[in-house]
């Protein structure tokens, strides 16, 4: 493969952005890329990025599948808030918050609630036929209210060693949160590429009526992806609430749906549905997380943060767009001698 072909790959520019952000951070703060062993686990900028991107990656993975079916799920942030609220209020209310059984039970309850939200979303989209953006808007707005009611409008704080492990723990020297995300990524990849689920999702996303006539259970598949999306958002909610050991219903996962959609798009999955790329979503999540972290490292002035973020995202999206790529290629080609039209 020549250089041109590499540059045309849809993940080329996102990866360039990722490298540039890392290099810039490392230039500003040379210690940034150093990975050291501290208290028996790895510590350093790259480890931080992995751990931090786990939340976004989880949400974006579910979002990828939903978007592949021509859908969108705006309720993921609210589901995160609900997951944290249910789990932590149950742990806080239990007599033994530090017990592993308490934590597992609380997480199971939260997962059940999140799955119910996913089933509800999927029902509205696949069965009732409401447009996904409208259907999921219901829980996007109402979900936080539910989480607030569960926590009684307070930030529920708990002390529970097993729960804290989710976000702050390490296993084999690696952050547990990153391992969870990696595991879910692996399972999703297996589920979609080792079974026929992936190609059926794509088929439904590209042409729903043709897929139905081909015998594909389009309805079931669409329903399933919303449930999967909610489940992944729930796990993300665990990590987020474990991170601060508090259920902050107002802020947990606030606006993460936008970041997730962005990660999916940067990863090369079209919002029009169809072909999706999990690897692309992984890269997209890393880019966005690194971007957020590098803002602190680079010391971007507070007032310029939004602008800086927007500029990086716009640059990546523009460079990726087929139109711009085409223009850049034809400009290069124009230099080469081409047969010119002969006047008649």
């Amino acid at each position: 493969m020549n250089l041109g072909a590499i540059a045309r790959h849809r993940l080329f520019w996102p990866l360039v952005a990722l490298v540039l952000l890392l290099v810039a951070s490392a230039l500003k703060s040379p210690a940034f890329l150093e990975v050291t062993v501290r208290d028996g686990h790895l510590f350093g900028g790259p480890v931080d990025i992995l751990r931090r991107s786990s939340v976004l990656l989880l949400v974006a993975l579910g979002m990828t599948l939903v978007i592949a079916t021509r859908g969108i799920d705006l309720s993921v942030g609210a589901v995160m808030a609900i997951a944290g609220a249910v789990a932590l209020s149950q742990i806080a209310a239990s007599p033994d918050p530090g017990a592993l059984s308490t934590v597992l039970l609380a997480m199971a309850t939260a997962l059940a609630v999140a799955l119910a939200v996913g089933v509800f979303n999927g029902f509205l989209v696949a069965v009732v036929g409401i447009q996904p953006i409208v259907a999921t808007l219901i829980f996007m707005t109402a979900g936080r209210g539910i989480a607030m009611l569960i926590t009684g409008g307070q930030i529920t704080t708990v002390t529970s060693a097993p729960y804290k492990t989710i976000a702050s723990g390490y296993w084999l020297g690696l952050p547990v949160a990153a391992l969870i995300a990696a595991f879910v990524f692996g399972v999703t990849a297996l589920l979609t590429r080792r079974t026929a689920l992936g190609v059926l999702i794509e088929s439904v996303g590209i042409n729903p009526s043709a897929s139905r006539l081909a015998g594909v259970r389009a309805r079931t598949i669409i329903w399933t992806v919303y449930v999967i999306c909610a489940a992944f958002a729930c796990i993300a909610g665990f990590i987020k609430s474990s991170d601060i050991m508090a259920a902050d219903s107002n802020n947990a996962g606030l606006f993460i749906e936008l970041d997730a959609i962005l990660a999916v798009v940067i990863g090369g999955t079209s919002l029009a549905g169809g072909k999706f790329s999990l690897t692309g979503t992984l890269v997209g999540s890393l880019v966005i997380t690194t971007l957020t972290l590098s803002i602190t490292i680079l010391g971007i002035p507070v007032n310029a943060v939004s602008l800086f973020k927007a500029l990086v995202v716009i640059a990546v999206c523009l460079l990726q767009s087929p139109v711009v790529q085409h223009r850049m290629r034809s400009r290069r080609r124009r230099v080469a001698p081409v047969p010119v039209e002969v006047p008649a």
């Binding site: 602190t296 490292i297 010391g299």
Partner: peptide, 8 residues
Amino acid sequence: EGFLQAYP
């Protein structure tokens, strides 16, 4: 976390 990475 960012501060801790950037400023030792």
